[in-house]
Simulated scan of single mutants.
Amino acid sequence: MREREVVHARGHENVTAEHSSTFEVTSDDWLTPAGDCILAVEADRVPADFDDAFVEACRDPEATIIATLTVTTDEGDTYTETVDGRGHPDLVFENERSHVGRTSDYVDDRTILVGADAAAADFDRELVDALTAGADVRFELVVERDQD
């Protein structure tokens, strides 16, 4: 079974992508330099908006959750980064501001996947430069799990 959610956002001049254990996409329209895990702002959807079937699929600890960030500059250059993680029974998708992917197993209401194989600091620096320049972002989450 495969479920999908898509979020649109944009980069911000304060994107540094230096955090070593998380990455985040937020609906906030601002970003301070301290937000070193945040990749994009002004997300048009938040975890609380996601379909129930998607949320349920993500609660399977055997599920694979694939986060793909596609960044497109005003000049038409495109950069893509994919992070693989997994589901967790405690994922709630109730947050109304932020999507956070984690390399750890920590779960709160912002967590969208755990056990990520990359964090913000691992993202391609050309992609990060495009985010810093305010590029458009397509953030896609796909959950795959074996059917019962």
Rank of each mutant, 00 (worst) to 15 (best):
R2H: 03
E3M: 10
E3D: 09
E3K: 15
V6P: 14
A9I: 11
A9S: 12
R10C: 15
R10P: 13
G11M: 12
H12R: 12
H12P: 15
E13I: 11
T16Y: 05
T16W: 06
A17N: 03
H19G: 02
S20L: 11
T22R: 03
E24S: 10
T26W: 05
T26F: 05
S27C: 03
D29W: 13
D29P: 12
T32I: 06
C37F: 11
L39S: 09
A40R: 08
V41H: 11
A43Q: 12
D44M: 13
V46L: 14
P47Y: 14
A48V: 09
D49E: 11
D51T: 03
F54C: 10
V55P: 15
A57G: 06
A57K: 07
C58I: 10
D60A: 02
I65C: 01
T70L: 02
T72G: 02
D74R: 13
E75I: 00
D77N: 11
D77Y: 09
D77F: 08
D77M: 12
T78N: 08
T80C: 04
T82M: 13
D84G: 08
P89K: 01
P89M: 09
D90K: 07
L91T: 04
E94C: 03
E94R: 04
N95Y: 10
N95I: 06
R97W: 08
V100F: 00
R102S: 00
S104D: 11
S104N: 04
D105R: 06
I112P: 06
A118C: 04
A119N: 04
A119R: 06
A120M: 07
D122H: 06
D122I: 03
D122M: 04
R125T: 03
V128R: 01
A133V: 08
G134M: 13
A135Y: 10
A135W: 10
A135M: 13
V137F: 14
R138D: 14
F139T: 10
E140V: 15
V143E: 07
E144A: 08
E144C: 05
D146P: 09
Q147C: 07
Q147R: 15
D148S: 11
D148M: 07
